[in-house]
Design a protein around this nucleic acid. Structure first.
Length: 130
RNA sequence: CUGUCUUAUCGCUAUGAAGUGAGGCGCUUGCGCUUCUGCUUCAUGGAGGAAAGUCCGGGCAACACAGAGCAUCGUACUUCCUAACGGGAAGGCCCUGAGUACCCUGAAAUAUAUUUUUAUAUAACUUCAGGACUGCUUCAGGGACAGACAGUACCACAGAAAACAAACUUCCCUGAAGUUCUGCGCAAGCACAUAUUUCAGGGUAAAGGUGAAAAGGUGAGGUAAGAGCUCACCAGUUCCGGGGGUGACUCCGGAAGCUUGGUAAACCUUACGAGUUGAAAGGCCAAAUAGGUUUAGCUACUCCGGUGCAAGCCGGAGAGAGGGUUGCUCGCCCAAUCCUCCGUCAGGAGGUAGCUUUACGGGUAGGCCGAUUGAUCGUUGUGGCAACGCAGCGACAAGAUAAAUGAUAAGAUUCCUUCAUUGCGUAAGGAAACAGAACCCGGCUUACAGGCCU
């Protein structure tokens, strides 16, 4: 039995420029306030199966301190709730959370919204399987 | 100057140690090396005073570099500090304020003289208020503080005028004309003087009160009226001599012409300085694929027909290294098949082309170095007024890279609000600033809750 460990290491982050470009050029997207979510189901075998990118716009948040805080909250929320996608362990997906609100939302609210978004992604993966 | 703290759970990142999984290589066949910046556990470290703005200066790196001039940009009192600076320290000069000394005006009180008194005059001192100029200060604050007689340009409003000193108003003199007063005369008129008006010529820059700024100031002489026109004192400029100081500069004495508005942060002049680009610099390793160079191998053959004297050309059939088509077989499809020389006509050699293969180089993805031990920090001694230097001892203090240093919960601390209270206290709620390293240092500037010190 696999134990759910709440980690978020380097190989779970989307770092390669090539794949980031691929995600932004070819990926699908939906809005779930306060996020815009981009996702792309891919067949690359040289990276781990799920990779995530988090982005907070400089346009809405001028101060680096604010951007860091939001990114930390989103990362933390994903880390705690990422096991939602574990029912499809062999599907490869890149996805990006782009924070589009200009307010600094508290952790509780970010977490609940991010959970909804993950459930929706899970449904999308399910329909792809079928 | 300082820049909230504690605990628990779950995480991130760097380094070290131990264990372990998978792949590869080597052989001694169960060990070593290496890759996946794999996984697990343990230990230790993990944002700032400004990490910010990116405004100066330097280190470092690549490229460039004979010399001189011009242009451009920057800097601008002196000496010192420093790797360097547009930074800092000490000092010079100037400005402003404060205090103080001297001077003037007014008031009060006091004394003396005159006077019946009121009052008036004089005197020094005291107090209060106001004003101007100059000097002084172990006082406070400020100064982009070279040059405005090299040149050009500009100076709003107000004011007569804003920079060659001239026009205007006023003042003064001379002349002409008129009016008036007086005298003479019957009258017309004439004469003299005063005052005044107009015109012409001349003198003057003293007066004009506006302004941020008005052509040295005060007094006396002088003059028709005036003027540095002359004189005394004061201020200022330039030059000379002497003293002090490393120097900016300053003190003393003398002479000259008697005097020069401001803006250089408008252009400009002078002196000094500056090669360009920034870590996305620069260096190294390097998968797959497609080019380039290269090693070795295989293949480039046979027949028929037409035409031509012939070399050859055209057409057809087979063969064909090898490749494609689902892992294999069959089948199917694609496919270079050319030139020169020697020749005993069997063939051989070379080139070229195709395919396979060996190695090399450039180089993309990606990775590593650069990159955190340094103009470092702490402390003691010592030199210096100080900035800072020197010596000894000790310490190692983030190193990420789509970018770590966090999230949640509970509590403490401080502050604010509300209720209650004489007050202490207690209860509830809220807040805890400015702000996030990105190659590294030295500065500057800006932001900042609360607390502490002067």
């Amino acid at each position: 039995m696999q134990v759910n460990r709440f980690t978020f290491r380097k190989n779970e982050r989307l770092c390669r420029k090539k794949y980031i470009r691929e995600l932004f050029d070819e990926g699908s997207s939906f809005f779930l306030y306060p996020f815009k979510i981009l996702y792309l189901i891919h067949t690359h075998t040289d990276v781990s199966n799920r990779q995530l990118l988090i982005s907070v716009s400089k346009k809405h948040h001028k101060k680096a301190v604010d951007r860091n805080l939001l990114k930390r909250r989103i990362r933390e929320a994903y880390r705690i709730n990422k096991h939602i996608l574990d029912i499809y362990p062999d599907k490869n997906i890149f996805f990006a959370y782009i924070y589009i609100d200009s307010e600094l939302l508290p952790f509780k609210k970010i977490e609940s919204k991010l959970k909804q978004a993950l459930i929706r992604l899970k449904d999308i993966l399910g329909t792809e399987m079928a």
